[in-house]
Design a protein around this nucleic acid. Structure first.
Lengths: 419, 419
DNA sequence: CCCACTTATAAAACAACGTAAATAAAGTCT
DNA sequence: AGACTTTATTTACGTTGTTTTATAAGTGGG
């Protein structure tokens, strides 16, 4: 119900009765989801709505199958409540993560629990055509394993490793690969799978997943940080994922933490990613080894050194390697501290392979983030690892769809929907 | 209508019919304000509401005196429209800025135009008692000059140079002065002036002023930066001022831009403020002079060197001083670039005395901000000086009150209101 | 064991709000 | 002069949530 008008870009629109109903329906559904088996009366209290209204909405949800009765609760001095809960099997959602080397798709229930998982190798460097073929193959396989997937599904969410800017379309061109040639993801998927398609970048999708179903549940302000090949992020401000003016918000990886720092892949200098991205970690490791007069690490030549070798060496007790990882955490901690100062979130959720390295990285990360944030600012901030695990990208993509059901706030204006 | 509930901190609340009316009233009033003399029909189109609804709401606003008819517009082939516009004189607002050395109060109309201005010197170092007395004196003077101020006023906004955290009260204790002793601003003002009082920190107030009445008008995403004694900021995200989880959002001044940089007043190292705050500028100037083997600048001894001496020297052609100011702009530009990457705003508004130095600072600031933001990110971002001038703080404080009238989105949960 | 008291749920009367359609008002255009 | 257009107002109506009332189904004291 929000529109763009001539008012210099500000969105202003009136509301009608249907908007109230949509809002209250989402509020009730979200409360039923979160409070587990719960009585209508308690939902009414939590939502600040009258019992009558809540009863009617829940009746509607029960008729639609989204909510089911779940026995009777204990009496607290009166008639015992009839409990209701979300029926997670009522509908499903599909999430597809297009990674640089792999395609991962999941079919989830309404709790974002993975029910079917399909993975196919597909290196992006092989071009858009090849990836398109693999995407089609994935959806064929999904339909084979779950023939009713399309009808039962709320839609398909897609996470792509590139910004989805308002000023461009759903066509997806990774910035790292100018030869790619463009891939109109919704168009492609709608050929095989008859459901709405929503596309967003992978950091936003993961953030949304953690916000709705993972470590950020219940927070109003959340910062998500993903440290993988690059370093990215996404923001939840006052209860909703925020994309900024053009959809590019959250790019914490290219904030400068060293004015005259090393060059970064983005063309700048001293970006966080130049220190704590994969390439940056390897670069620092090589430099440290050279300074120490060593030309090998755990049997690997300097020129072939990858992050996994550094991790292995650190686990095997190599102190230099351990220090490189510690510094990685420290750099990330500074980036996180900076973002905490700007956003003052109540929770920071960390994801990505660099975080998965473990305590060697996250320990210093958390310590430095707390120490270098403005005193008082980070005290109330939890800094935790994501809960969505290895399939966070695909599950987050599914969350793009599930959000439509649960999100209380008005959905974003930028929705890339086909059919 | 938003409440805190047990749902792990997330705010969820149902809406009722009255919420619709409140929302639509604000939408209509905001459109009338922004579109100047405008017909009911045009407002209806812009608001996506039916002509009937808009007519009724405007009738209500006219009866209340907030809106008045302003002649007739030209016919476009049919009945000529009766134009309506905001009557800025209908009500007033009071804004008080408590600065480190000065108290400034303004009485404004509904367009935030200053009608009365009262200033009193009051150094915060003299303690809360003295300041309290001066605040009372200011309101006495206001009531003397405009006896009807209290009845006519929507309320009093107060901007204080300290974070207003949700976790603390309205009691205001500047972090720089532990001896201060606390000042309950709403309580104090309500002794003299019978109107609601809203308190926020100065950066938030200024940002709100620029957003509603100044350089940020019409934007949805805005970053405000104030470079004065320190460096601060505030955020508008998706059409509303955002304060973060605890009210501390926007502290751009203490983001780290140099991992091993110079110590900052906050206890950290390499913060933006350590380079571009007043103390940082003076420190860099002294250091540059020493390196150049000079012990004076424009007749001033190194130990007494203040920013104003650097500015004077630069204006008089001193190249070293000019370079110090250029670097100040560059450091600020890096901080702005970092925030642009995280927030992707459509406009950055600059304020504070350091920005007022002029092109010598803002030129490099804008250039560096554009160059060091992620490619593509800053292209659509305007970077401009604030439009509210010298009284931006006090006018912004008044905006805290005016916002209640115009703000379309739900008002923040944290309102410090007395009476 | 019964009766007063709670608590939960359902149903009916009611009030607020916006819309659609009809009507009136006041112009333009051929 | 007559058809058409645009703006504004009035009226009937539908949606939505609330309040009130009734009903169901427990608890607890005497």
């Amino acid at each position: 119900m929000e529109i763009e008008d001539g008012n210099r870009g500000r969105r202003v629109a009136g509301r009608v009765a249907g908007d109230i109903r949509r809002h209250n329906r989402a509020v009730v559904l979200e409360l039923v989801r979160n409070l587990g088996p719960v009585s209508r009366a308690e939902v009414a209290r939590a939502a600040r709505l009258s019992p009558a209204t809540v009863a009617e909405i829940i009746g509607e949800l029960v008729r639609e199958g989204l909510v089911r009765v779940a026995g009777e609760g204990p009496s607290t001095g009166g008639r015992p409540p009839a409990l209701v809960e979300l029926d997670p099997e009522a509908r499903s959602a599909v999430g597809l993560e297009i990674g640089p080397r792999t395609l991962t798709a999941v079919v989830t229930d309404l709790n974002a629990a993975v029910k079917v998982r399909v993975e196919k190798p597909s290196k992006m460097v092989e071009g858009a055509k090849v990836t398109a073929g693999q995407v089609e193959a994935i959806f064929e396989q999904i339909l084979q394993e779950v023939p009713e997937a399309a009808e039962n599904s709320l839609g398909v969410g897609v996470a792509v490793p590139a910004p989805i800017l308002r000023s461009r379309g759903t066509r997806f061109d990774p910035p790292s690969d100018p030869e790619w040639g463009g891939l109109d993801v919704p168009e492609l998927i709608s050929r095989k799978f008859d459901a709405p398609v929503l596309v967003d970048n992978d950091a936003n999708a993961r953030a949304l997943g953690e916000f709705l179903f993972g470590a950020g549940r219940g927070a109003s302000n959340m910062l998500y940080v993903i440290a993988h090949w690059g370093v990215g992020g996404a923001l939840v401000v006052d209860g909703d994922l925020r994309r900024g003016a053009d959809g590019g918000a959250g790019e914490i990886g290219h904030t400068v933490i060293e004015v005259d720092g090393p060059p970064c892949g983005c063309g700048g200098y001293g970006c966080l990613e130049a220190f704590a991205g994969r390439a940056g970690i390897a670069r620092r490791a090589r430099r440290a080894l050279k300074l120490a007069g060593r030309d090998r690490l755990g049997g690997v030549d300097l020129d072939d050194l990858k992050v996994r070798h550094v991790v292995q060496a650190a686990r095997d007790g190599d102190e230099l390697a351990a220090r490189v990882l510690e510094e990685t955490g420290q750099y990330l901690g500074i980036g996180v501290a900076n973002a905490i100062n700007v956003l003052n979130p109540e929770v920071v959720v960390l994801g990505g392979s660099t975080v998965e390295i473990g305590e060697m990285v996250t320990g210093p990360l958390v310590r430095v983030a707390r120490r270098r944030a403005l005193p008082g600012m980070a005290e109330g901030t939890r800094i935790v690892k994501g809960e969505l695990g290895e399939d966070a990208g695909a599950v987050g993509a599914a969350a793009l769809v599930l959000r439509e059901l649960f999100a209380v706030s008005v959905p974003e204006a930028v929705r890339r929907t086909v059919v």
